[in-house]
C-alpha cells in the first residue's frame, strides 16, 4: 500500500496524543485536584500527591494539540474533506465511522477538562473546584471518560486496518495490539518529556522512563513477530486471482493499460520491500533504545534527555508506521502480477 503522509501523520501524532490523554485521564481520575493546582498551592493537598504525569494544563493542552493535528491530517487524505461530517453516520458497520465518533466524543471530556484547567488558571484557584461535586465526582468521571475515549478511539483506528481481509498483513490481531501498545508508548514518552523539571518531579521522570522501557519491550517484540509473519505469508498468485490456477501457471502477458493507474499506484508500492530489512532495524532500534538512552542520559544531563527520547521514539514510530503501510500487499496486485 502507498504510504500516504497524511495517514502516517494522523496515526502517529494522534496515537501519541491519545496515549498521553489515556495517562492524563488515569492521573486525573485518581488525583482529580492535581489539575487545579500549581506548585505553589500544592501544599494545600496532603502527602505526595500530584506526582502523576500530564496533570498540568500546558502538557494537557499540548496533548490536545497532538490529537487535533493528527485528526486534521487525516482529513487531508480525503477527496472531499468538507463532507467529513458524513463519516459519523455508519457506525453500525464501519470502523472508520466508529473511529470518527469515538474521536469526537473523546473531545467532550478533554474539552471540559481543558476548560476547567483554564478557569482554574485564570481565576486563581477558585473554591468551587474543591467542592465535593468537582473533586470527588466530576473531575474523576471526566478523567475516566477521557481514558476510555482515548483507548476506544485507538482501538477503532487499528480495527479500520485489521478488518481489511484484502490486506493479509493487516488482517491480524497483532495489528490492534501493536496500535494500542505503541500509542501508550508514545504517550509515555510524551509524559516523560512533560514531567516538570523542579526537583520534586525528577523521580517521576525516572520512573516514567523505566515504565516506557518496559512498554517498549513488548512493542518491539510484537512488531518483530508481525514482521516475521509478514515474511512467511504466501502471496496470492495471479493464477488464483484469475481463477485459472488449475489450467497451469498463469503470468501477466499484457497489462490493461500502458500507464500506471490508481490501483497500481495505491496498492502496488514496492519501494519498501527493497529496503525493509534496514528500515525495520531502524524502527526497532529507535523505539527500543530511545527511552533507554533517555534514561541513562537523563542521569547526566537532566530533563533535556527525555526530549531527546521523545524525538527519537517519535521518529521510530514514523518509520514503523511508514513500513506498516508500505510493506502491506493488497490482494488486487495479484492481477498485475507484481
Amino acid at each position: 500500500m502507498r504510504p500516504t503522509f497524511s495517514i502516517i501523520c494522523f496515526t502517529v501524532l494522534s496515537g501519541i496524543g491519545y496515549g498521553a490523554w489515556f495517562l492524563a485521564g488515569i492521573s486525573l481520575a485518581t488525583h482529580p485536584l492535581c489539575f487545579a493546582l500549581d506548585e505553589s498551592s500544592m501544599s494545600r493537598l496532603p502527602g505526595s500527591l500530584c506526582n502523576l504525569p500530564l496533570t498540568n494544563l500546558v502538557s494537557f493542552l499540548l496533548a490536545f494539540a497532538l490529537v487535533a493535528t493528527g485528526l486534521l491530517c487525516s482529513l487531508a487524505h480525503l477527496g472531499k474533506p468538507k463532507r467529513a461530517w458524513r463519516a459519523l453516520s455508519q457506525w453500525r458497520s464501519s470502523w472508520l465511522s466508529r473511529e470518527g465518533i469515538a474521536a469526537l466524543v473523546t473531545f467532550v471530556p478533554a474539552s471540559l477538562l481543558a476548560l476547567t484547567g483554564f478557569l482554574v488558571w485564570t481565576t486563581n484557584h477558585p473554591s468551587w473546584v474543591f467542592a465535593p461535586f468537582w473533586s470527588m465526582f466530576a473531575l474523576p468521571l471526566l478523567g475516566i471518560c477521557l481514558s476510555a475515549g482515548a483507548l476506544i478511539t485507538v482501538y477503532c483506528t487499528a480495527n479500520i486496518y485489521s478488518s481489511l481481509k484484502t490486506i493479509r498483513a493487516w488482517h491480524d490481531r497483532k495489528v490492534v495490539a501493536a496500535y494500542l501498545l505503541l500509542a501508550l508508548y508514545g504517550g509515555l514518552l510524551f509524559a516523560t518529556a512533560m514531567a516538570r523539571s523542579d526537583f520534586a518531579w525528577m523521580s517521576v521522570r525516572d520512573a516514567l522512563c523505566v515504565i516506557t522501557v518496559m512498554v517498549a519491550i513488548p512493542c518491539v517484540w510484537l512488531k518483530y513477530r508481525y514482521w516475521r509473519s509478514l515474511d512467511t505469508q504466501p502471496h496470492i498468485s495471479t493464477g488464483h486471482a484469475v481463477g485459472l490456477e488449475l489450467l497451469g501457471i498463469t503470468r501477466p502477458l499484457e497489462a490493461p493499460h500502458t500507464e500506471e493507474n490508481y490501483l497500481t499506484r495505491e496498492m502496488g508500492f514496492v519501494l519498501a520491500r527493497k529496503h525493509s530489512r534496514k528500515l525495520r532495524a531502524i524502527a526497532f532500534g529507535l523505539i527500543l533504545f530511545s527511552p533507554i538512552v533517555g534514561f541513562l542520559l537523563g542521569l547526566a544531563i537532566g530533563p533535556a534527555a527525555s526530549w531527546l527520547a521523545l524525538t527519537g521514539g517519535t521518529l521510530g514510530l514514523f518509520v514503523e508506521r511508514w513500513l506498516f503501510f508500505a510493506e502491506a500487499r493488497h490482494a488486487v496486485i495479484a492481477y498485475y502480477g507484481r
Binding site: 477527496g79 463532507r83 458524513r86 472508520l96 484484502t166 490508481y262 490501483l263 495505491e266 488486487v332
Partner: peptide
Amino acid sequence: DKCIGCQLCAWACPYGAREISA
C-alpha cells in the same frame, strides 16, 4: 453526493473494482 473520498472501499475490494477520480 455523499462520498468523502476516503478510499477505504477501494482498499476493502480484492478485485480492484473501485478507483478514485483524482
